[in-house]
Amino acid sequence: MTKIPVYLDINGHHHELQLEPRVTLLDALRDRLGLTGTKKGCDHGQCGACTVHVDGERVLACLTLAAQAQGRTVTTIEGLAREGEMHPVQAAFLEQDAFQCGYCTPGQIMSAVACIREGHAGSDEEIREYMAGNLCRCGAYPHIVAAVRQAAQEVAS
């Protein structure tokens, strides 16, 4: 199929790509733009490793066509830190040891940032439910909850 021009706004930078329409946002980020922080765990919307923000909301890049993201703003894990300063959620993940192998971590962090922003980090129980879309095979969940709780308090104060 012929490629189409796709304009993407990612982490504040504009990119013009020529893509087959079937290219997902995830594969565009990873294979075309070198933004490999976003991970592929299942490619079917079942693990959350590819979580990014589109227009500020957490979504799965593996089930989003790159072409669909044109005209929207995309934020990935690489765009979260500002001028080398970690986002409070990143700092909390580091401090709470909220990861082990680190593979699900970018997705967890993008999900956590949105979870707090949505107002779904009000209690540990709520955090657990609203972070349930991000699998962690290493079993870092208790520390992930602690990190989200800590970051939510910091963001609120």
Binding site: D31, T36, T76, L80, L94
Partner: peptide, 16 residues
Amino acid sequence: GFLKVTGGARYAADNH
């Protein structure tokens, strides 16, 4: 940790 929370940790499939 810093590499892992910022997306900078390079796993095998991240190479190109």
